[in-house]
């Protein structure tokens, strides 16, 4: 009980719960997003304590970094759209206190039930540990999480890439035809910072992708870090999306899904099923898939941040001049 790590765990757990409450109760929406980002980073730290560094990296890069950027961008848009009268973005009609209390009570009951179930559950129940450990030599990589993601449960990962693709299609569709209102200008990022940070981000992202074969890292973490390159380029206006770039962007969105599905189909046959990579080429194939998926993830996340199709930007330029 006097173990300093237990004290650290308790303090971290308390901080996480307190930040979750703070994120929902703080009045200012900007402060809410900042509190949420801190909450996400501390959760990632907690997952490192639970010896899940891959998950922690993904949460820090995607769940916190990219999500935080998306939230900030939307908040900026909302404040711009509602103009000077701003701030009250509440859909008005106040909910009766009684309904609120009933909701809170039911949520409390659900949470209590979950807690009872969790505390009563047998600890360290049978998992897939031994199964994965036995099959690792056949996977072509040395890191179990990458093996599971890209080999044993590759269908899940393929569908995950498809979900990302569907999201970007949906976002482009939703914001189509909004050209009357010019997109709100974002604050400038200092060019010098971008010049210093960009090469470092590219190196870190590529390293994360490469090291995924034998250590924590991989396509999703690397892709999210590389997406930061896109965000910085957009924010510094070093790159302004043009309508005729849409074709390239669409190609990049589909690249990961396409290569993934193609490899899965091509290895099938000759007694093998889809995703059953031939052992000699397993590592090469996995790296090929991961590389292409990384490019797709980076471009898709940057496009999700940018929001609407570039065509609207063109029209907006015409309005301005």
């Amino acid at each position: 009980m006097t173990d300093p790590l237990v004290i650290f765990d308790l303090l971290l757990a308390l901080a996480i719960v307190a930040l979750a409450v703070a994120a929902l109760s703080v009045r200012d929406l900007y402060a809410m997003i900042v509190v949420f980002v801190i909450f996400g980073l501390l959760s990632a730290l907690a997952w490192v304590r639970l010896s899940a560094p891959d998950v922690a990296l993904a949460e820090a890069a995607i769940g916190t970094g990219v999500t935080g950027a998306l939230l900030l961008k939307t908040l900026h848009h909302l404040r711009f759209a509602s103009g000077q009268r701003s701030v009250s973005m509440t859909p008005t009609i106040p909910v009766p206190t009684g309904v609120m209390l009933a909701n809170a009570a039911f949520c409390g009951l659900i949470t209590l039930g979950l807690a009872v179930a969790f505390l009563g559950a047998p600890s360290a129940g049978p998992g897939f540990d031994t199964l994965v450990a036995e099959s690792m030599p056949a996977s072509g990589v040395d890191h179990p999480v990458t093996g599971v993601l890209l080999n044993f449960r590759a269908y899940d990962t393929l569908m995950e890439v498809v979900v990302l693709l569907a999201a970007v299609v949906a976002v482009w569709q939703i914001e189509r035809g909004l050209s009357d209102a010019p997109a709100p200008e974002m604050g400038e990022v200092w060019q010098g910072f971008a010049r210093l940070a960009l090469p470092a981000i590219v190196v870190v992202g590529t390293y994360l992708l490469w090291v995924g074969a034998e250590a924590p890292g991989g396509a999703f973490q690397g892709g999210a870090v590389l997406a930061a390159v896109g965000l910085l380029l957009l924010l510094t206006r070093a790159y302004v999306p043009q309508p005729h770039h849409r074709g390239i962007a669409r190609g990049a969105f589909v690249l990961g899904t396409g290569v993934f599905a193609l490899v899965a189909l091509l290895v099938a046959g000759g007694g093998r099923v889809a995703f059953e990579y031939p052992l000699d080429h397993a590592k090469t194939l996995i790296l090929l898939i991961e590389g292409m998926v990384t490019i797709s993830i980076a471009v898709t996340l940057a496009a999700l941040f940018h929001g609407r199709e570039p065509v609207a930007l063109r029209m907006e330029d015409r309005h301005d001049t």
Partner: peptide
């Protein structure tokens, strides 16, 4: 590793 992969999928 299997739940870890599931959580990464969930995050994305």
């Amino acid at each position: 590793p299997v739940p870890h992969a599931l959580v990464i999928t969930g995050i994305v």
